[in-house]
Design a protein around this nucleic acid. Structure first.
Length: 732
DNA sequence: AGCACGCCGACT
DNA sequence: GTCGGCGTGCTC
């Protein structure tokens, strides 16, 4: 036999397996089979079989040849992963200090897609055959089939307006026969000139600039900074059209699944077809279809969540990251990566343009634009010509409401006027529940979470006290657990439920609606209510941060922010930035379509740079203040870096890596290497911008510092975890 | 004794 | 990431 011949050396290949091991494993290639780098294979690993990809066909001499196993299957109908994608996987693994196999796992997320496409079962008329007994339903089916073509069972039932059992009956009586239809045809291609909109001069300029980026042989990054309603989407569409014109695929990354739906619709209006959709909640069938289509090139445009960045595009030529400042682009579990940053990397490796867009860019992107690393396109006006909302602060120390009320008189007046004029108002308060703190007026007892030190938030609708940190909840007791006093508990401070109470008190005739993620009815009800608001079926809406993005509210005239300072006081070094982004987003919704919007911010510190920048509309002032503030706080000035936490048994490797990073970093990147205990302290003091993912269970010091953190956050797990939060721009 | 659970190393 | 081995501690 061929492979017994000692003269013929067996071919071996290194294969990346989807497990957390540092590198590729070596396998023997079965005789008669051939693989190339990128070929997807199935290999035995321990007691199971896993999907992996050939990473290298160089023999690795270090492994005992007797230990080598055979590749058990070669997926030769699936195109091998191309060089750029393999480099990208390695790059991300290297950046996140993760195992390359774990990154590859994100690419191979649809095992079904590797099987050759199965033909679809269908039915066809047997020529000349007539049913013994004809019924109305049967005749409708036969009439529908007049053209002689084969149909799918459910498609035919639907078209003829009968149930599938009628078809089964006809099959049984040999009037129809079962046939196999060729698999679904590729999806229709977007039509470049289907409905091109007239663009404003600013939009045209941005489009022209982006089109030029396609000629940059090295790839480039652009930042579109456009106010809410400035028509960023129309600009993306023209960039996408350019990519398609150049026979390249395009990818649009959105931070949240809930935003995809309206994006899909708008894409359809522009290009006449729906783009492919990719996120964790699509069905297995669609997932398979999109994965295959992207790899074959049949799918030209994908709209997706961060995981879409790892799809095996055949000829990707553009990535657009919408709402680039959004923290949802960061993945915290498994491989911790920032999809926005890794999109920049993927574009760099494959030399195509990447577009970051936001009405409130992150500080690091703004700095990159200021330094000329990114092209900057500004869209300062609304595309509809509507004015930006007029914003004003209500200083609660001067014109606050009476005790026990939360809406300042001026805001109440504005609500009254807006309601009288038939406009819609939104009261924004980023605090779920009725009241953030409950205490006993007799003994001062405060309700605290048993698992962490956070206050318990009263939820009056649900009659519960809930910890918003870890999810713990208990029933609202009828007497104080400390002094046994009856009816002594008082709610302190407002939550959306309490604001709603005040609103129905003040405006009993108005249609009010609370939008908060924790209300009974779940996501479906929320979706319905969003729609009601969209259609103008509510006069006063009280909402938490989920009203900040997504749906467009055309009738919205007034936005009142209840506690504009909320979030500014926290230790989070990004607090100012996050607050600015959130408030700019939510107030930007007022008068978005028809203009004439008003925003009122209730605040206790009207001089805060965030509030001042919001009121003046001078974004540049905000960014300047923020960069200065970080500098004087000893934080890395450009919002890019921060710290590398090293913990776990394999410290040597991570420390070596961290030192190399520190050495390679330019002078403006204060890379700091912290041991676990220092890291814990630094985090408690809010000195560094990093997140803790997990840590080795044996790090006692760290655990005692962070008991609270651990009680609420991710479970400790063994092994090495390192979080690097550094802009990769310098390392490209 | 029997097994549930957590820890840990191995996986080519 | 997943499996299997092993020790600990608790229950039918």
């Amino acid at each position: 036999m061929l492979f017994d011949d000692p003269d013929i050396k067996e071919t071996i290949a290194s294969v990346l397996v989807p497990v957390a091991v540092p590198g590729a494993y070596t396998y023997k290639v079965p005789p008669g089979q051939s693989v190339v780098p990128g070929t997807i294979v199935k290999v035995p690993l321990g007691s199971r079989e896993v999907i992996g990809a050939v990473w290298d066909i160089e023999p690795d001499a270090a492994i005992n040849p007797n230990k080598l196993k055979y590749i058990s299957r070669v997926y030769d109908t699936t195109p091998p992963l191309d060089k750029d994608l393999r480099r990208f996987v390695d790059w991300v693994a290297n950046w996140t200090l993760g195992a390359p196999g774990m990154v590859l796992r994100m690419v191979l997320r649809s095992e079904e897609a590797l099987e050759p496409e199965a033909p679809v079962p269908g039915v066809r008329r047997i020529e000349g055959a007539e049913p013994e007994r004809s019924t109305a339903a049967r005749s409708r089916v036969l009439a529908t089939m007049e053209d002689g073509f084969a149909w799918t069972r459910s498609g035919l039932a639907h078209a003829a307006g009968v149930s599938a059992s009628v078809i089964d009956g006809l099959l049984h009586h040999n009037v129809l026969e079962a046939v196999l239809l060729p698999a679904a045809p590729p999806p229709p291609k977007p039509q470049l000139d289907y409905a091109r909109k007239t663009l404003t001069p600013a939009q045209e300029a941005a489009v022209a600039g982006l089109v030029k980026c396609f000629d940059t042989a090295t790839g480039s990054v652009s930042l579109i900074d456009g106010v809410t309603g400035s028509g960023k989407t129309e600009v993306y569409f023209e960039a996408i059209a350019e990519a398609l014109r150049r026979d390249r695929q395009a990818l649009v990354l959105l931070p949240e699944i809930s935003l995809t739906e309206q994006f899909l619709r708008r894409f359809e209006q522009r290009f006449g077809v729906y783009p492919a959709e990719w996120h964790s909640e699509i069905t297995v069938k669609n997932r398979t279809r999109v994965w295959r289509g992207v790899a074959s090139g049949d799918v030209r445009v994908v709209i997706g969540a961060r995981s879409a960045l790892f799809l095996p595009f055949r000829e990707l030529g553009l990535i657009i990251v919408d709402e680039e400042h959004d923290a949802a682009f960061k993945q915290d579990d498994r491989v911790p990566y920032s999809a926005r940053d890794m999109a920049v990397v993927r574009g760099h490796l494959s030399k195509f343009p990447v577009v970051l867009a936001s009405a409130t860019p992150s500080v690091e992107s703004r700095v990159n634009a200021d330094l000329g690393r990114y092209e900057l396109f500004e869209l300062p006006e609304r595309a509809s010509g509507a004015d930006l909302p007029e914003l004003d602060a209500i200083d609660m120390r001067v014109e606050g409401p009476e005790r026990g009320r939360w809406l300042a008189p001026r805001l109440v007046h504005a609500l009254k006027d807006t309601f009288a004029a038939g406009g819609q108002s939104l009261l924004f308060l980023n605090r779920r529940g009725y009241a953030p703190l409950t205490l006993c007026r007799t003994c001062g007892h405060r309700f605290q979470c048993a698992h962490c030190s956070a206050w318990l938030v009263e939820h009056r609708f649900q009659k519960k006290l809930v910890c918003h940190h870890c999810g713990h909840f208990e029933k609202v007791p009828d007497k104080c657990p400390s002094c046994q006093g009856v009816d002594t508990l008082v709610a302190c401070g407002p939550g959306v439920e309490r604001i709603a109470e005040e609103v129905s008190d003040l405006f009993p005739q108005a249609r009010t609606l609370v939008l908060s993620s924790d209300l009974p009815g779940g996501p479906e009800r929320l979706k319905r209510e969003m729609k009601i608001v969209e259609e103008g079926g509510a006069d006063i809406v009280i909402g938490t941060q989920l009203v900040a993005k997504g749906h467009n509210f055309p009738k919205l005239k007034l936005v009142g922010v209840i506690d504009a300072d909320l979030g500014l006081a926290h230790g989070d070094p990004r607090a100012a930035e996050k607050t600015f982004q959130l408030l700019a987003q939510v107030t930007g919704r007022a008068g978005r379509v028809h203009g004439g919007g008003i925003g009122l911010l209730q605040t206790y510190c009207a001089e805060h740079p965030v509030i001042r920048a919001l009121l003046s509309g001078d974004k540049a002032a905000f960014y300047k203040a923020e960069i200065d503030a970080r500098r004087s706080a000893g934080l890395p000035p450009f919002g890019r870096l921060a710290a590398v936490i090293v913990s776990g048994p394999d410290k040597t490797f991570a420390e070596g890596y961290a030192r190399a990073l520190a050495r390679a970093a330019p002078a403006d990147q204060a890379v700091t290497l912290l041991g676990p205990a220092e890291a814990a302290l630094a985090m408690v003091r809010g000195r560094y911008r990093f997140r803790l993912l997990a840590m080795a269970p044996r790090q006692f010091d760290l655990q005692s510092y962070l008991r609270h953190w651990l009680a609420c956050g991710p479970k400790p797990s063994r092994g090495l975890r390192v979080q690097v939060d550094i802009d990769p721009q310098h390392f490209l």
